[in-house]
Write a protein that binds this DNA or RNA. Structure first.
Length: 552
RNA sequence: GCGCCCGUAGCUCAGUUGGAUAGAGCGUUGGCCUCCGGAGCCAAAGGCCGUGCGUUCGAAUCGCACCGGGCGCACCA
């Protein structure tokens, strides 16, 4: 918004300098216009002097001083000065900030969302855990990241679809059938040796028990029984997963079964295409894909010498199918232990003629649960995992989502269960929600004092003169940049950090300044500011899928 | 052995894609309620950005080497 104007001012100054012979006609630099870290350095700053210095062989600070003479800030800047070793800092007039916010007020909150997506179609695939057991906490983190990323991208003009992929054609589901079968035998009083590589969790026994209770007819043939139970168990578990996800606030647009890729012949088509293009070759009785032609990675097997297709093959087919469904961008969210898988998938995408930049894999690092300051174990093999459901029951949906989003997704996350339950400023979720409730409370009080807040028509925003007030306005407007950056970098955690910062500004302001009980005009102006603030907080929380309570 | 990620205050982590004197929160210390929700606020102390070279006006950020932690390296999924 205003950034463009600053850039214009800078380039105008350059043009003037060129005309006056200070700068050579042919220079063309691309100066930055950024928001300085420190408040004392103004609202925007540019590095143009550093870029021009070597060209005209003068020191950056000298260049800056010359350039600043040529700068015509129009009526938007309070002052422009040179600082540091040659930065040019722009200090905007308070009026500019107030008017920008007023603009948002009249145009609606939608004007705070940049249009970066331009209607492009994105498919976000996440969780995709095989229905062989309940979701654990790591899946929870992936679910939160994927869901919120979807919200972010939607809000900036992408058309987003959320998809869950199920490897129902693989061995894991077969093993689940086997496990259920053995437990079922056990329950019927037979002595069985339960192998280590079968699923150890008690839920398998429950499923077997369900089978007996429901009195369904079970095929007599062992193999038929196993595959029957595989179908039964996986579909029961999937129901549970969907339930857990629903409780967590995550709803998928589509569940996609690997088996349909085979049924519809997509796998065969993909293989034919790869062969046709010369990216598949035979060696040692197996069919290989030429990963190494595209990425720094080894060639990988598509069809084993035994004739069986690898998981990789159906995955290539799956991603080709995604493109065939006319998605422009594919985002996959994986556990970070799958990072070695990225090059080969990227290679396959290029082999099929797509831009490798249209595919992004986000990696989710592991979560350590802390209880009483100590790590709470989660070993899946022994069946003692901490499930997503347990965590949601323990700390609530809001806290769980917020905590999952408080770190960059590829960084380790320590999830302190005790902290997530605390009702104090130590707990960032409460800190943010409390601000919203506090503002709501002010509005309730205003109402009972007979101050109408339905319409701010004719409000005099120039009464907002305090530093803290201008600071809040800047914070609200900053949403635009945050959501833009968050969308472009695919980093949901930026919203979380933004909220904590924004709300901190409010709490300070609140402590120092009374909103109600001033002159009617001033009170109304402050209420107007808070109404905008409240709306941005609510929007941000909405993107995170966290509630914005009116009372707590 | 090869590859990827990470190393920033006592702890947990940000750091606007190369910018200025490196920032939050927690914890510690000391303050603030006759007043809109103290579930809050203010202030102080706290740093060799793992180490060493390099790239340049300028590096926590980019490159190389090393140290330390995590994870991958299947005709598994």
């Amino acid at each position: 918004m205003i950034r463009k104007k600053i850039a214009e001012i800078i380039s105008n100054a350059c043009e003037v300098s060129k005309k006056q012979g200070i700068l050579p006609e042919n220079v063309n630099v691309n100066p930055s216009v950024e928001i300085p870290r420190e408040e004392g350095f103004g609202d925007y700053s540019t590095n143009i002097a550093f870029l021009l210095a070597p060209i005209i062989k003068k020191s950056p600070s000298e260049v800056a001083r010359i350039l600043i003479e040529k700068i015509n800030p129009g009526d938007i800047c309070e002052k422009v000065d040179v600082a540091g070793k040659g930065f040019i800092n722009f200090y905007l007039k308070n009026d500019v900030w107030r008017n920008l916010l007023k603009d948002v007020y009249t145009k609606g909150i939608g004007s705070l969302y940049p249009n970066v997506g331009e209607g492009k179609k994105v498919l976000i695939e996440f969780v995709s855990a095989n229905p062989t057991g309940p979701l654990h906490i790591g899946h929870g983190r992936g679910a939160a990241v994927g869901d919120v990323l979807a919200n972010i991208l939607k809000s900036v003009g992408y058309i987003v679809s959320k998809e869950y992929y199920i490897n129902d054609a693989g061995r894991q589901i077969k093993t689940l059938g086997e496990s259920t079968y053995l437990r079922w035998k056990e329950l019927q009083g037979e002595e069985v040796l339960y192998p280590k590589d079968c699923y150890q969790g008690d839920y398998v026994k429950d499923l077997a028990g369900q089978l007996i209770e429901s009195k369904v007819e079970i095929p007599l043939d062992r193999d038929a029984a196993v595959s029957f139970m595989a179908r039964f168990s996986s579909s029961e578990i999937l129901k549970g997963i969907q339930q857990d996800l629903g409780d967590f606030g995550v709803v998928f647009d589509n569940y996609y079964n690997e088996s349909t890729l085979f049924d519809r012949g997509v796998v065969e088509t993909t293989l034919d295409l790869l062969k046709e293009k010369g990216y598949a070759y035979e060696k040692d009785g197996a069919l290989w894909f030429t990963t190494s032609k595209f990425e720094k990675d080894e060639d990988r097997v598509l069809i084993k010498s035994g004739g069986e297709k690898t998981y990789f093959t159906s995955d290539i087919a799956y991603h080709m199918d995604k493109f065939n469904r006319s998605f422009d961008m594919l985002v996959d969210i994986w556990g970070s232990d799958h990072h070695g898988y990225i090059p080969r998938l990227k290679a396959s995408i290029q082999a099929l003629g797509h831009d490798k930049e249209s595919f992004k894999a986000l990696l989710i690092q592991f979560v350590t649960l802390l209880k009483d300051g100590k790590p709470a174990g989660m070993s899946t093999r022994s069946g003692q995992f901490t499930t997503l459901q347990e965590v949601v029951n323990e700390v609530g949906r809001d806290a769980a989502r917020f905590f999952f989003l408080i770190r960059k997704s590829d960084a380790h996350l320590e999830f302190d269960l005790d902290l997530a339950k605390k009702s104090s400023n130590e707990n960032p979720v409460f800190y943010v929600q409390y601000a919203h409730a506090r503002i709501a409370s002010i509005f309730r009080n205003a109402q009972s004092e007979g101050i109408g807040t339905d319409s701010f028509h004719g409000v005099d925003v120039t009464l907002l003169t305090l530093n803290e007030e201008i600071n809040l306005i800047k914070g609200i407007l900053h949403f635009y940049h945050v959501i833009e950056g968050s969308a472009k970098s695919l980093e949901p955690h930026r919203i979380t950090f933004y909220l904590i910062d924004l709300v901190g500004r409010f709490h300070s302001y609140y402590n120092k300044t009374r909103v109600l009980g001033n002159t009617k005009e001033l009170t109304l102006a402050r209420l107007w500011l808070l109404s905008m603030l409240k709306e941005v907080i609510r929007n941000s929380l909405g993107i995170l899928g966290v509630s914005a309570p009116e009372k707590m």
